[in-house]
Design a protein around this nucleic acid. Structure first.
Length: 325
DNA sequence: ATGGTTTTTACTGCGTC
DNA sequence: GACGCGGTAAAAACCAT
């Protein structure tokens, strides 16, 4: 079975990484003795098995760290970027001061020195935990940054996301939760607060964490930090959708006004904001003669066409009933 | 866990290019 | 005949309880 799997995977990987796929295929011979060559990736050398002649050296291993079976995994294992698992902030390397009041020879310390040591312990502990939070923060911020740029979120969102994360850290919300999970949740919250919301799906798409966990962590963080986040305003999605579809400002304005009349009519409660926004954009595109298809809208909004249909009927009805008055 | 609501999936029919 | 659109029924997802 491993044979089949192997050929399949190497092919796949080669597709995307053309550079150095030949190593397994071509069989070069040693120029001196004709012996077989072997590649020593650790030292970056190609050596002859028989005579030991170094044929090539200082090669760079550009490949990913391990074999990867899909693109996601490949991302994780690539050589660049932060290591994915660094469970202990200091890898157990930081200093610890023993609790016994003995010197290096095992003799007891004088009272004066004991007090000194006590102070040292306190400070060492303080620095160490401070340091641990610092590292934690650093990693989280990197993660937030990565996701934010993947989603095209502006700097101020990253800013608030990191503020939220800092608060979570200060309130000791982290234990039992992953750094990635909390950073993702922070970013999600920040995006919504800033009025440039991204759907849970979009967020989950760039995060290392599953959607469910993000939602769970998000709820938790919001509750504990008592962040006030009102349900996303459909209007806030409009600009993004409109620009993704290449619609004019005029169309965007129409979409907004449609949403506003809908709000006055109270059509919008309980419905997904994204769906409403998508429908409004679609309806607006019709009204200003810049027709885009339903499926195009559903594509950029990540919403089903059916939902767009249902919503945009409601939107137009609301508009009509206002027009009659 | 449950029930009610919303969204999605899958399918069908109609008109147009 | 492919495409865009509308509608429907049933399944799935979501949410408050």
């Amino acid at each position: 079975m491993s044979e089949n799997l192997r050929t399949y995977t190497t092919e796949n990987v080669d597709d995307e990484r053309e550079t150095e796929s030949e190593s397994e295929e071509e069989e070069l011979r040693c120029p001196e003795c004709g012996g077989q060559l072997a590649t020593d990736t650790e030292h970056g050398e190609t050596v002859c098995v028989d005579c030991g002649l170094v044929v090539e050296e200082d090669e760079i291993d550009r490949g990913p760290e391990w074999r990867a079976f899909d693109s996601k995994e490949k991302d994780n294992k690539s050589r660049v970027g932060a290591p994915t698992t660094n469970m202990m902030h200091d890898k157990g390397l930081s200093t610890n001061i023993g609790w016994q009041d003995k010197d290096a020879y095992g003799k007891s310390l004088s009272g004066r020195q004991r007090r000194r040591m006590q102070r040292l312990r306190t400070w060492n502990e303080r620095f160490r935990t401070r340091d641990s939070k610092e590292r934690n923060l650093k990693q989280a911020l990197g993660e937030i940054d990565r996701m934010a740029s993947a989603l095209g979120l502006p700097d101020n969102v990253r800013e608030t996301a990191s503020v939220i994360y800092r608060r979570a850290l200060d309130e000791d919300l982290l234990p039992g939760r992953s750094i990635e999970g909390v950073s993702t949740a922070s970013l999600y919250a920040a995006a919504r607060q800033a009025g440039t919301p991204r759907s849970l799906d979009e967020i989950a798409g760039v995060s290392r964490v599953e959607k469910d966990e993000i939602a769970r962590t998000y709820r938790y963080v919001v509750r504990e930090l008592k962040l006030e986040i009102q349900p996303a305003d459909p209007e806030s999605y409009v600009p993004r959708f409109a620009s993704d579809l290449g619609l004019s400002d005029e169309a965007e304005r129409r979409a907004r006004s449609l949403l506003n009349t809908a709000k006055e009519q109270g059509i919008h409660s309980g419905k997904s904001p994204v769906g409403l926004a998508a429908a409004a954009v679609y309806a607006a595109s019709l009204l200003v003669n810049e027709k885009v298809t339903q499926s195009e809208v559903s594509e950029v909004a990540n919403i089903s066409e059916v939902t767009i249909r249902n919503r945009y009927h409601e939107l137009l009805e609301a508009e009509d009933s206002v027009a009659l008055n």
